[in-house]
Computed example of a mutant assay.
Amino acid sequence: MSQPSLKHAGKIAFITGASSGIGRAAALALAREGADVALNYWTMAKEAEDTAAEIWSLGRKALLFQVDISHQQNVEKMTADIVSQLGGIDIFISSAVYSDREPFTTANMEGFRKTIDISMWGSFYALRAVSNVMLKQGRGGSMVIVSSPHSHIPFPNCMAYNMAKSAQDAMARSAAIELLPHKIRVNILHPGWTDTPGERKFFSDEAIKKAGSQTPMGRLATPEEMAHGIMFLVDPYSGYMTGSTLTMDGGLALPWWSKRGKDGEF
């Protein structure tokens, strides 16, 4: 068997929302390529512990930080602790999200604000804290903001999430231009509908399977597929990419619905 590459040997990665889904898959992928990983999570403690254990089994360090990223002081302390315990930060992946889905006219404002606070402000707090670490280190770095097609497709009953993801895209591009002189790259990933535990908040397994069959690809994406996109963006060979958006949506943005026949099939 061929040995995995160690493109990120000696690197330190920091991932928010790392206990499950895309964040977890990215953490494991980075560890397989040699990086030590700081794992942020808030819920799903058992899953976070399992992820850390798997990373340790790969011969890499994994530190757990149970921190609510919607509070700036908490994020800044966590970032300082990562630097203190691991020695720095070279790669940052913003993957933590929260979302309630309701018509905006009747939405519970507590959930609406929580969606913004975690999905937008939390991402910004971490981006800001990590940027300052990378600037102080003076050795460049790479960051990926896991955003969404929600940033440009106004899915109904998702106004808060749509708003947060639109803001994330603008945030990432703004950071990319400001950090460009310091060789710190900031890119965006737009995943399609991905089969993650978070989807079970809204849909049953049966509903997800049925809905997935109606997407252009006929299925939902896997977290591991999205992790491949993240690994491409942080790869040293992608060093000429910054301020870019990698879309891995399975054709969601294409006019795939126009190709259906009378019976509703492609």
Rank of each mutant, 00 (worst) to 15 (best):
Ile15Val: 14
Ser95His: 09
Met109Gly: 02
Asp90Ile: 07
Gly23His: 03
Ala31Pro: 03
Asp36Ala: 00
Lys61Phe: 15
Arg101Val: 13
Pro103Ser: 11
Glu102Cys: 03
Lys11Phe: 12
Glu110Met: 01
Glu47Pro: 08
Ile116Gln: 07
Glu54Ala: 00
Asp68Ser: 11
Ile89Lys: 05
Thr51Glu: 00
Phe14Pro: 03
Thr79Ala: 06
Phe112Asn: 08
Phe112Thr: 11
Leu63Asp: 00
His8Pro: 01
Lys7Thr: 12
Ala48Cys: 10
Trp42Ala: 15
Gly34Leu: 08
Gln72Ala: 09
Tyr98Cys: 05
Ile69Val: 11
Ser20Phe: 01
Leu86Arg: 04
Val67Asp: 03
Met44Tyr: 12
Gly17Glu: 10
Gly21Ile: 07
Val75Asn: 03
Lys61Gly: 13
Ser95Gln: 09
Leu63Phe: 10
Leu63Trp: 09
Ala52Cys: 07
Ala27Ile: 09
Ala27Tyr: 05
Arg113Gly: 02
Met109Gln: 13
Ala29Phe: 11
Glu110Lys: 04
Ser5Ala: 15
Gln72Cys: 02
Val67Pro: 00
Val67Phe: 05
Ser19Pro: 05
Thr51Lys: 15
Ala80His: 04
Asp100Thr: 10
Glu49Asn: 07
Trp42His: 12
Ile93Cys: 04
Lys46Ile: 01
Ile22Trp: 05
Tyr98Phe: 14
Leu58Ser: 06
Asn74Val: 00
Gly88Asp: 08
His71Phe: 14
Ala27Gly: 05
Ser95Tyr: 08
Leu86Tyr: 07
Glu33Lys: 10
Val67Glu: 02
Glu49Val: 14
Ala31Glu: 06
Gly88Arg: 08
Gln73Met: 06
Gly34Val: 09
Ser84Asp: 14
Ile12Glu: 01
Ser20Arg: 15
Asp50Gln: 14
Asn108Cys: 08
Val97Lys: 10
Ala48His: 08
Leu86Met: 11
Ser57Thr: 08
Ile55Cys: 04
Met44Cys: 15
Gly34Cys: 12
Met109Ile: 14
Thr106Glu: 14
Gln72Val: 06
Gly88Lys: 07
Ala53Pro: 00
Val37Ser: 04
Thr79Phe: 01
Gly10Asn: 12
Ser95Leu: 11
Gln66Arg: 11
Thr105Leu: 10
Ser84Cys: 09
Ala29Cys: 09
Trp42Gly: 15
Gly88Thr: 07
Glu102Asp: 13
Glu110Pro: 02
Asp36Phe: 05
Ala9Met: 07
Glu33Leu: 09
Leu86His: 04
Tyr41Asp: 00
Ala29Val: 11
Arg60His: 05
Asn108Thr: 11
Leu58Asp: 06
Tyr98Lys: 07
Ser57Tyr: 01
Asn108Tyr: 05
Leu64Lys: 09
Leu58Gln: 00
Leu39Tyr: 01
Leu39Val: 07
Ala107Leu: 10
Ile12Tyr: 00
Arg60Tyr: 02
Thr43Asp: 14
Tyr41Ile: 13
Asn108Trp: 05
Ser94Lys: 01
Ser95Asp: 12
Ala107Ser: 14
Ser99His: 01
Gln73His: 06
Phe14Asp: 02
Ile91Trp: 01
Ile69Asn: 04
His71Asn: 15
Ser5Pro: 13
Ala45Val: 15
